[in-house]
């Protein structure tokens, strides 16, 4: 039975849904709009039509060297994600394809490391970073972000790998494929989508991580999170510039996020909701 949906119902629901959606999206929209205003315009009261100046974007670069924290964000998020994948893929692979009685316990234990509050180890990590000269270095922060995201990487990969049917492996083996051929020709093509999703979600998480990135950097290795947070002191007349810096800081990850909605659900609920 096809449910009869009246046009009226659909129109009302549409209007309501769009109203809610625009309300939620408003702060982001307004940031983009403000970034295109002049500084006096930015504090001149509510106005959705800017004078479309790009000066703020230029100024942020010339006065504050925006490219530097941006580059740091890219290096840290991509670097730590790739590192976590290199360490995580063999592990998830082993657990998915030759599970033992203890596999479940190992997975749960890995997840439990994610529950440790960051602030609880702030002191030892800070002191270790200081003693090893890792404070405000990209390598130190990359290691940190890798460790933080490793459990999520392994979990996500595991849930994807587990869906690759084992029969295919057996069939390949019967046809005389060796381990190497098995990996290159059979498993890799089937695993790529899962690996790509994991990569995407973890770049997003690493990009937005705002505890360690702020606390363990000062200038040289500071990514965008620390860069933006440094503007928290109240000076009234830089909103347009701050908006320009903010827009550039969130735009790439916002677009990536739109493409990874499904993976987000899966990754962040550890496969509990699909």
């Amino acid at each position: 039975m096809a449910r009869s949906v009246t046009t009226r119902h659909k129109v009302i629901a549409t209007v309501a849904a769009w109203a809610v959606a625009l309300l939620i999206f408003f702060p982001i929209l307004y940031t983009v709009v403000t970034s295109l205003k002049t500084e006096p315009e930015a504090i001149a009261g509510f106005n959705l039509i800017p004078s479309f100046t790009l000066d703020n974007y230029v100024t942020v670069q010339t006065q504050r060297d925006y490219i530097k924290p941006f580059t740091n964000s890219v290096i840290l998020s991509v670097g730590s994600t790739i590192l976590a994948l290199i360490i995580g893929i063999p592990s998830a692979w082993a657990m998915a394809f030759s599970p033992t009685k203890r596999t479940k316990d190992v997975l749960m234990w890995m997840l439990s490391t994610k529950m440790m509050p960051a602030v609880a180890v702030l002191v030892p990590i800070y002191l270790m970073f200081r003693d090893f000269g890792l404070l405000d270095t990209r390598i130190g922060l990359t290691i940190m972000l890798t460790l933080i995201n490793l459990p999520i990487v392994i979990w996500m990969l595991y849930t994807y790998f587990r869906e690759i049917p084992g029969e295919i492996l057996e069939a390949a083996r019967m046809d005389g494929a060796g381990l190497w051929q098995e990996i290159v020709y059979v498993l890799t093509p089937m695993a790529v989508p899962g690996i790509a999703s994991t990569l995407l979600l973890n770049i997003i998480l690493a990009w937005n991580e705002s505890f360690w990135t702020i606390r363990l950097t000062t200038a040289t290795a500071a990514p965008l999170t620390a860069f933006i947070a440094s503007f928290s002191s109240p000076q009234g007349l830089f909103w347009a510039k701050l908006s320009a810096a903010s827009t550039m800081a969130i735009a790439p990850i916002l677009i990536m996020g739109w493409f990874s909605q499904k993976q987000l659900v899966r990754g962040l609920t550890f496969g509990a909701v699909k």
Partner: peptide, 18 residues
């Protein structure tokens, strides 16, 4: 959906300052 999901991708310092 895209509009509603967007705030999740905004890094905390940006969200708070906006």
């Amino acid at each position: 959906r895209i509009l509603v999901i967007s705030p999740f991708f905004v890094m905390p310092p940006v969200a708070a300052l906006v």
